[in-house]
């Protein structure tokens, strides 16, 4: 029996439970317009019904499953942690990813709040390094917590010499 697990421990902190609503809202933001477009086409245009019919049916089954399953799955996976010398985050659902960046390589630390996030009282912490594909994005944080983490990281980064490349 092969070991299937990536032998990294989960980061310490879960994200806020409200993040489930955020992800559900985002899922609906994809599913509903798609369903709407299909329904309009189905209602107005006879010729496409052989395609839109099964499409709508599939969406009716897969849409709710996606909009409830994905957020719960994400909530089980998404975790984060900062230590004195590194940032560590786990994210994803179907594809899980773990990212680790040394604080000494951090270039910018941002907190971002989109409209949905403001409504739900959430915040996203974005940590970028010099790599074009290296940003660590931790969504679903409590705004105060995110701000504190950002301030702490910026402070440690400021103490570390070097140009981070």
């Amino acid at each position: 029996m092969v070991n299937r697990e990536v032998l990294l421990r989960p980061p310490r902190h879960r994200v806020e439970r409200r993040a489930i609503l955020l992800w559900a809202a985002r899922a609906l933001g994809v599913v509903l317009p798609l369903a709407g477009a299909l329904a309009v086409a189905h209602a107005l245009w006879d010729a496409v019904r052989p395609w839109t019919g099964p499409g709508l049916l599939a969406l009716a089954v897969a849409g709710p499953v996606y909009a409830t399953g994905m957020p719960l799955w994400r909530y089980a996976v998404h975790r984060w942690e900062t230590t004195d010398d590194a940032v560590y985050a786990a994210a994803g659902w179907f594809v899980r990813e773990w990212r680790i960046a040394p604080v000494s390589r951090i270039q910018t630390v941002d907190t971002v709040r989109g409209p949905f996030e403001q409504l739900l009282g959430l915040s996203t912490l974005t940590v970028t390094t010099a790599s074009s594909s290296g940003a660590i994005r931790i969504s679903g944080l409590d705004p105060q917590q995110a701000t504190r983490a950002a301030e702490r990281l910026s402070e440690i980064t400021g103490r570390t010499p070097g140009d981070a490349t």
Binding site: V2, N3, R4, E5, V6, L8, G92, F94, V95, R96, E97, W98, R99, I100, A101, P102, R105, T129, A130, S131, S132, S133, G134, I136, A164, T165
Partner: peptide
């Protein structure tokens, strides 16, 4: 300047994972 480990459900089933080294 950072590492990323990725594993999809299928990769987990097969006992695989990808490791990326980030660099500037």
């Amino acid at each position: 300047s950072g590492v990323q480990v990725r594993q999809s459900l299928l990769q987990w089933r097969l006992g695989l994972a990808g490791v990326w080294a980030m660099t500037a």
